[in-house]
Amino acid sequence: MTLLINSQRCRRCGGHPRCADVCPGNLLVLPERGHIVSREPDDCWDCGACIKVCPQQALAVSLPPEAGGQGSTLRAKQIAGKIRWTLEHPDGRLETIDL
């Protein structure tokens, strides 16, 4: 499970989930009620496409323990056509990187 979904933040994109639309693996689905879910969390490629389009920053990636993950996460936000990444280190420290 490498895609992290923050259920509180997901606002369902008015029923047309942007994240699900762009996922190259068609992994994300919006149930009739509630937040976005992944059909097969372990099938995520970690491409970050969904994270970059989510208007609520409800999505993040982390490395699974099988790949040496220690809990860092990456979130993204689009600001005027640019991407602002937020990297949360294992100790909770936040680092922002603008592209």
Binding site: M1, T2, D42, W45, D46, L63, P64, P65, E66, A67
Partner: peptide, 9 residues
């Protein structure tokens, strides 16, 4: 790697 990393290809 397997498990949750199986698509870390």
């Amino acid at each position: 790697a397997g498990g949750a990393a199986r698509h870390k290809q």
